[in-house]
């Protein structure tokens, strides 16, 4: 169990190759955006990151329900690992968004609906990770975490409604919208490659992180039995 299996390493390698190719296409080959210029290229990281983060949080939601139902710690290990991945990619989304926002909107941050929602999402799941870290007893931590993850996910549509009524400035979605995507087709290829790359990379992280979590459980068990004998 010292190293990941061959399949995981292949997975990680494929993710790396896809991302490298997608980034090369997006940053070098594809011509700059007609209006925004080179700044627009940050989209090739920004958009796939947030989609990946949402997928990760959905995984946390599903595995949390499964944990409360089946009481199998493997589900909890997936939930906590996926939450970490989601937080990292939400962080990347916020950071790249700010870097894009400064030259485009003239400000690093504005309380527009989508920015606000992403920030709220970030705080909810950072709270989740802190809760896990501060739990005195691992099993209680797993239960509390699962409960919080379910609450947090149910909260998303309500947040959505509240924040959209409050304000809206972000440019509307340009790919998932009625009437087909409005992004030039040569921009779509690197976007799709990066998206696939990030999903594979997250899966790779997830597999490795779950393995780590299980090693941790085993260490704790071994310590416990040794303590009893000694």
């Amino acid at each position: 169990m010292g190293r990941g299996s061959l399949a995981t390493r292949v997975l990680g390698g494929t993710a790396g190759l896809l991302l490298a190719a997608g980034l090369y296409l997006g940053l070098v080959v594809v011509p700059p955006d007609a209006v925004q210029g080179d700044v627009q290229r940050i989209m090739y990281v920004h958009v796939p990151s947030i989609v990946t983060a949402y997928i990760a949080f959905f995984v946390v939601f599903c595995t949390s329900i499964l944990y409360l139902w089946k009481r199998d710690l493997r589900f909890d290990a997936v939930a906590v690992s996926s939450a970490e991945i989601g937080v990292v990619f939400t962080g990347i989304t916020l950071a790249t968004g700010m870097i894009w926002g400064k030259p485009t909107w003239g400000v690093w941050w504005t309380w527009d609906a989508r920015l606000t929602l992403t920030a709220i999402l970030f705080t909810i799941y950072v709270g989740y990770l802190m809760l896990r870290a501060f739990a005195e007893e691992p099993l209680a931590g797993a239960r509390y975490g699962a409960v919080l993850a379910i609450l947090g996910f149910l909260d998303i549509p309500l947040n959505h409604l509240a924040v959209y009524w409050w304000r809206t400035l972000h440019q509307p979605s340009s790919i998932l919208r009625p009437g087909g995507p409005s992004v030039a087709s040569d921009m779509l290829l690197p976007l799709a490659m990066n998206f696939a790359g990030l999903v594979l990379l997250s899966t790779y992280f997830l597999v490795e992180r779950v393995r780590l979590e299980r090693l941790r459980h085993r260490t704790a068990e071994v310590r416990l039995t040794r303590g009893r004998r000694g």
Partner: peptide
């Protein structure tokens, strides 16, 4: 039941109650 319980309540409560 957590360590640092006084801090954790607001940290979890405020993000969830934004609506």
């Amino acid at each position: 039941h957590l360590r640092a319980r006084e801090v954790m309540l607001p940290l979890l409560l405020f993000p969830l109650t934004v609506p």
